[in-house]
Design a protein around this nucleic acid. Structure first.
Ligand SMILES: [Mn+2]
Ligand SMILES: [Mn+2]
Ligand SMILES: [Zn+2]
Ligand SMILES: [Zn+2]
Lengths: 137, 137
DNA sequence: TAACAAATGCACTTCCATTGCACTTACTAT
DNA sequence: ATAGTAAGTGCAATGGAAGTGCATTTGTTA
């Protein structure tokens, strides 16, 4: 079991108190979070720091960004071997219209999408909206 | 060939000069437009009017909204028989990473997406990003 | 043409994202 | 250990897009 310090160091990110806390927060959450979610969890920290921390995490492929159509960008931890830096994330995302949470369905890969002649597909964003397992039960 | 007045009337929208101009603008554009695009095309008109006009068009199913992941909502004319009001738009959208334009691929329907047990899919947003035909030529 | 409803214009507001700059903290080389 | 440097943090401010309240104008209908 890797410690948080080890995770950060392995990604060439300087270890700071704030970064460890935010990383821990992301691990414990199972859903994608907004910057405001992080803000609310760390009221004593400055918004800018949180913002730049998540941007650093994104750059270093610790988290990936999710546009679920709510208008607010969300972030979730990358999986082992995630290559969202070179290609867009290949798994699909689910947004619950009831509890308003967004989750990664990492097991569900995006099918091959055909595009017309002359078009070149580089990546695909796919968000399914509906009712999640917790809300449909 | 229907006139613009006839189109608007058939959708139960009051015909005004502004609305006819905006409709004409949308018809002539083949790509999805942002509110700013419309603003730039009609500098003498007030932003609010353009905003509310496009919202009216959306409500009356003359245009549909597109979230292409750029963070700015875009709008494009609905096709004949478009049912984007009851279900999300079924065709896919293409965003060109080169010219930054977004277009409807109305011929290309979104494939059925499987979701895990317990999840209920209500609608799907699918955006393909890459190079469009004009830019790849 | 009078009366009413809807459309427009102006001024604000809110929310999220982003940046510049000063200050503090962490790493590195002596 | 200490100084120097690079990176991280906090504060203040900005900008863009979306949305709202209200007064005024325009269109419709009786
Ligand atoms: Mn994901
Ligand atoms: Mn479309
Ligand atoms: Zn739910
Ligand atoms: Zn293009």
């Amino acid at each position: 079991m890797e410690t948080i310090e080890q995770v950060l160091e392995s990604k060439n990110i300087r270890v700071t108190a704030m970064r460890m806390l935010i990383y821990k927060f992301l691990v414990e959450k199972e859903v994608a979070v907004t910057l405001s979610d992080i803000e609310n969890a760390f009221v004593k920290a400055d918004r800018t720091t949180l913002y730049r921390t998540i941007k650093t995490f994104e750059e270093k492929v610790i988290v990936h960004q999710i546009d679920d159509g709510t208008g607010i960008t969300k972030y979730a931890l990358c999986e082992e071997g995630c290559n969202c830096d070179i290609k867009n994330d290949l798994h699909l995302h689910f947004h619950c219209n009831n509890c308003n949470e967004t989750i990664c369905l990492t097991e569900h890969k995006i099918p091959q999408i055909k595009v017309p002649d002359g078009f070149v597909s580089e990546n695909v964003n796919l968000v399914v909206k509906g009712i999640c397992d917790k809300c449909s039960g």
